[in-house]
Design a protein around this nucleic acid. Structure first.
Length: 495
RNA sequence: GCACGGAUAGCAAAGCUUGGCCAUGCCGGGGAUUGCAAAUCCUCUUACCUGGGUUCAAAUCCCAGUCCGUGCUCCA
């Protein structure tokens, strides 16, 4: 069953093959570290984390590079505003980046290059582009001349040069600075007073935004690599600029075998932006929402579709997540005791309910793999896991003795760990799950009072005095206590 | 304006490349269980934007149209 991926450049799903058998080189554009990460970053890096995990699970050795843009206008602006050294801003935000990504259970990439470490190679590439007359030197920097390679235009957006000229309207003439043409973009920016600078053949200055990814991908992978990823917004101009720079510099095309772009996150139907006041940072959200629940909510959509974040979505994710955890927890518990038997061969047509149930679960795990192989369709994969939780719950009722129970528990545990755990990344560690939850101090305060009322209520119930029993429950409810009657007797929780 | 993507049940959202079966979860209906609740289990109803076409058969393919989102400027 071949893996198929949607390539932005070809605009269709195609079979996935790598340049070097069994190995995948993957470059994903990282963050500009001028501030905390937001929900959109979470979506992007969870999407590529899933791709990373699935490729590894499929037997590929993945070399995953994700950069940090650690010098740019916004960082300089922050530094001027706050008086803090730009290097301190950058270091601090990189540290919080890793904290946020760890909280979301995102596995580390193999390399996290920073663009300021690559200024020399950027200068070398720019110099080469000037030599080859793909770039020109102006008063205020060096620019890439797009008309020097018109055949490369519009590869990711499908736009022709003429179309852009039309669409840009009045802006076409406002080339600004030393740019000869509206379409051209900066490779090197001459320093303004007070800005951080690096020496170059064109005077002191700093690199333009696009050139860093060219330098870093070239350094790690050479002229061509398998997957280039990033947010949907980066297709143009950033990724098209990379195509120009890299392919004109190396003479090798295409730069990347597959271009993957994740869809955006909206909040309550509106674009997330600071001006609308609906800007969610990852740190803020994980205060309110379990990071695993957030991860499930984001994974529960195809990575290319836009996703609308709202209360209902999180509520659904919360519910689904706790159902999965319930099953996982009971699997862990029954896997612990008793001696293990061999389970029957899974057979969907069998009259043995155990063999049949196992057969259905085998089918679901195959469905999970098919979903992930189909352009990393995590939405469908989640559906398979949810369908499996019911089946696993049913399976665990089928054990007739301890040996069965343990074998079934182990089977359920492995089923979930293979899919929800290792791939979707939404299972907490077993230790964490089985640990006794910390007692709420507010609970201890009223415990005696509640226990006394519960005893009274049990007496009332024993005497079939239902009005009295319900009155006590109402009384408890006023204390903020919810009572549920279970087979082991009444239990209570704070609301 | 140009480009890219989308329109599926009350809601969210897969499936469309390779036409024929079935998404999935929530909500709602019915039932089991329960003194009643909660939880759990069983079960059911409700769909493929519109109009044409192709076909034994269309959510899926073709043609035309409508509506929506995003990009074209720093953005994951």
């Amino acid at each position: 069953m071949p893996l198929r991926v949607h390539d932005t450049r070809r605009r269709e799903k195609v079979d996935f093959t790598t340049q070097s058998p069994g190995r995948v080189s993957m470059y994903v554009c990282g963050v500009t570290v001028y501030d905390h990460c937001h929900l959109g970053h979470a979506r992007c890096y969870i999407a590529f984390d899933l791709i990373h995990r699935w490729l590894e699970a499929s037997g590929y050795d993945v070399d995953y590079v994700q950069n940090f843009t650690d010098i740019d206008d916004k960082i300089i602006l922050r530094s001027i505003e706050s008086g803090e050294d730009w290097r301190d801003i950058v270091d601090r935000n990189i540290a919080t980046y890793f904290e946020d990504m760890d909280a979301l259970n995102i596995l580390r990439a193999d390399h996290y290059p920073r663009c300021t470490e690559y200024v020399d190679s950027m200068i070398h590439i720019i110099d080469d582009l000037v030599q080859k007359e793909h770039a020109y030197v102006a008063d205020d920097g060096v620019y890439f001349h797009v008309d020097s390679a018109p055949e490369k235009y519009g590869q990711l957006t499908g736009q022709s040069i003429d179309a852009v000229r039309q669409g840009a309207g009045g802006r076409v003439n406002e080339t600004g600075g030393g740019k000869r043409d509206h379409k051209d973009f900066a490779l090197w920016k001459q320093a303004k007073p007070g800005e951080p600078v690096w020496p170059s053949p064109w005077g002191e200055g700093r690199p333009g935004w696009h050139i860093e990814c060219t330098a870093m991908s070239l350094d790690h992978f050479g002229a061509s690599f398998d997957i280039h990823g990033g947010g949907h917004d980066l297709r143009f101009p950033h990724h098209e600029a990379e195509i120009f720079q890299s392919e004109c510099h190396t003479g090798h095309a295409p730069l990347a075998g597959y271009w993957l772009h994740n869809g955006f996150v909206n909040i309550d139907g509106e674009k997330m932006s600071k001006s609308l006041g609906n800007f969610w940072t990852i740190r803020d959200i994980v205060q309110k929402v379990d990071p695993f629940v957030l991860r499930l909510a984001l994974v529960n959509a195809h990575y290319r579709s836009p996703i609308d974040m709202n209360e209902q979505l999180l509520k659904d994710a919360q519910r689904n997540h706790s159902r999965i955890l319930q099953v996982y927890e009971s699997a862990l518990r029954s896997a612990m005791d008793g001696r293990q038997h061999a389970l029957p061969t899974p057979d969907i047509a069998s009259s043995d309910p155990l063999a049949k149930s196992l057969g259905l679960l085998e089918r679901l795990v195959e469905g999970f793999a098919q979903a992930m192989d189909d352009d990393f369709n995590s939405r469908d994969a989640v559906a398979k896991v949810l369908a499996a939780t019911k089946q696993l719950q049913h399976l665990m009722t089928l054990g007739t003795d301890d040996g069965d129970k343990r074998a079934i528990g182990n089977y359920a545990k492995e089923w979930l760990e293979e899919t929800a755990g290792n791939i979707l990344g939404i299972l907490p560690s077993p230790d964490l799950l089985l640990a006794e939850p910390e007692e709420d101090p507010r609970k201890a305060e009223i415990a005696d009072q509640v226990e006394a009322l519960l005893v009274e209520r049990s007496d009332a119930r024993a005497n079939k005095d239902w009005p009295r029993a319900d009155a006590i429950r109402d009384q408890l409810s006023e204390l903020g206590v919810v009572v549920t009657d279970t087979a082991e007797g009444p239990k209570w929780e704070l609301e």
